Lab assay of single mutants.
Amino acid sequence: TETYETTDETEARKIAEELKRRGLTFRIERHGTTIRIESD
């Protein structure tokens, strides 16, 4: 499991693209301005 936290929408998108490219599944949670991406 890898966890990323960012407040930057663009960075979050880049992380999501990278995880997809590596064939990982992940979920995105939003907590206020923080975007949390957690891979399975």
Score class of each variant (00 low, 15 high):
38 E>S: 14
18 E>D: 13
22 R>M: 06
30 R>V: 14
34 T>V: 13
6 T>E: 01
27 R>I: 14
8 D>A: 02
35 I>L: 03
26 F>M: 05
13 R>E: 10
1 T>L: 11
23 G>Q: 03
36 R>S: 03
34 T>Q: 05
34 T>K: 08
3 T>Y: 14
9 E>Y: 09
29 E>S: 14
33 T>W: 04
18 E>Q: 08
20 K>N: 07
3 T>F: 13
6 T>W: 01
32 G>C: 10
20 K>P: 00
28 I>R: 02
4 Y>L: 02
35 I>N: 00
36 R>L: 08
31 H>G: 03
9 E>K: 05
33 T>N: 13
29 E>R: 09
5 E>S: 07
25 T>L: 10
21 R>H: 06
26 F>P: 15
34 T>W: 07
40 D>Y: 14
7 T>A: 06
35 I>Q: 00
2 E>A: 09
26 F>V: 15
22 R>G: 02
26 F>I: 15
29 E>Q: 09
15 I>D: 00
28 I>Y: 05
15 I>T: 02
40 D>P: 15
29 E>A: 08
21 R>M: 07
20 K>Y: 09
18 E>F: 10
13 R>K: 11
16 A>N: 01
31 H>Y: 12
9 E>R: 06
22 R>I: 03
34 T>N: 05
20 K>H: 10
26 F>L: 05
21 R>V: 05
17 E>Q: 09
23 G>M: 02
24 L>E: 05
1 T>E: 07
8 D>H: 03
25 T>E: 13
26 F>W: 05
19 L>W: 06
7 T>K: 07
20 K>G: 06
26 F>C: 15
40 D>N: 13
17 E>Y: 09
1 T>C: 14
25 T>D: 15
19 L>S: 01
37 I>C: 00
9 E>T: 05
2 E>V: 13
31 H>C: 14
2 E>M: 13
5 E>T: 10
30 R>L: 13
21 R>P: 00
23 G>E: 03
2 E>T: 12
14 K>T: 08
3 T>C: 15
32 G>H: 02
9 E>I: 10
40 D>G: 12
36 R>T: 06
25 T>P: 08
36 R>E: 02
21 R>T: 07
24 L>D: 04
18 E>G: 07
22 R>Y: 03
23 G>P: 00
37 I>Q: 00
22 R>S: 03
15 I>M: 04
37 I>D: 00
11 E>Y: 07
21 R>L: 07
33 T>F: 08
29 E>I: 14
40 D>K: 11
12 A>P: 00
2 E>G: 07
17 E>M: 10
16 A>D: 01
2 E>C: 15
30 R>S: 05
15 I>L: 05
12 A>R: 01
35 I>K: 00
23 G>S: 02
3 T>I: 14
15 I>E: 00
6 T>D: 01
30 R>P: 02
32 G>Q: 02
6 T>A: 05
12 A>F: 05
36 R>H: 07
19 L>K: 00
31 H>K: 09
26 F>S: 08
13 R>G: 07
1 T>H: 13
27 R>N: 09
10 T>K: 10
4 Y>P: 01
11 E>K: 06
30 R>I: 14
12 A>E: 01
18 E>L: 07
5 E>Q: 06
23 G>Y: 02
30 R>T: 09
1 T>F: 13
14 K>R: 12
38 E>T: 15
19 L>Y: 04
30 R>G: 04
25 T>W: 12
39 S>F: 14
37 I>L: 04
33 T>G: 11
27 R>T: 14
32 G>T: 02
15 I>P: 00
38 E>Q: 13
31 H>T: 10
12 A>N: 01
1 T>P: 11
15 I>Y: 09
34 T>P: 00
10 T>S: 11
20 K>R: 12
11 E>M: 10
21 R>W: 04
15 I>S: 01
1 T>K: 14
29 E>T: 15
28 I>P: 02
40 D>C: 15
31 H>P: 00
40 D>A: 11
4 Y>V: 02
2 E>I: 14
2 E>N: 09
38 E>C: 15
32 G>I: 01
22 R>P: 01
26 F>D: 15
10 T>N: 13
38 E>F: 15
11 E>L: 11
7 T>G: 05
12 A>C: 15
6 T>R: 01
31 H>V: 12
25 T>M: 09
31 H>M: 11
4 Y>Q: 01
34 T>L: 13
20 K>M: 11
8 D>N: 08
10 T>L: 12
14 K>I: 09
13 R>Y: 11
18 E>C: 15
18 E>Y: 11
24 L>V: 11
22 R>W: 04
19 L>E: 00
6 T>K: 01
19 L>V: 01
19 L>R: 01
17 E>G: 07
11 E>Q: 08
32 G>W: 02
25 T>V: 08
9 E>C: 14
34 T>D: 02
33 T>K: 12
37 I>M: 01
33 T>Q: 11
5 E>Y: 13
8 D>C: 10
14 K>H: 09
3 T>S: 10
16 A>P: 00
26 F>R: 04
12 A>T: 02
39 S>Q: 06
28 I>W: 08
38 E>H: 13
7 T>R: 06
11 E>S: 05
20 K>T: 13
5 E>V: 12
36 R>F: 08
39 S>I: 15
10 T>I: 11
2 E>H: 13
9 E>D: 05
10 T>E: 14
39 S>M: 13
31 H>S: 09
2 E>P: 05
40 D>L: 14
38 E>A: 08
20 K>S: 10
24 L>C: 15
34 T>A: 05
37 I>K: 00
29 E>M: 12
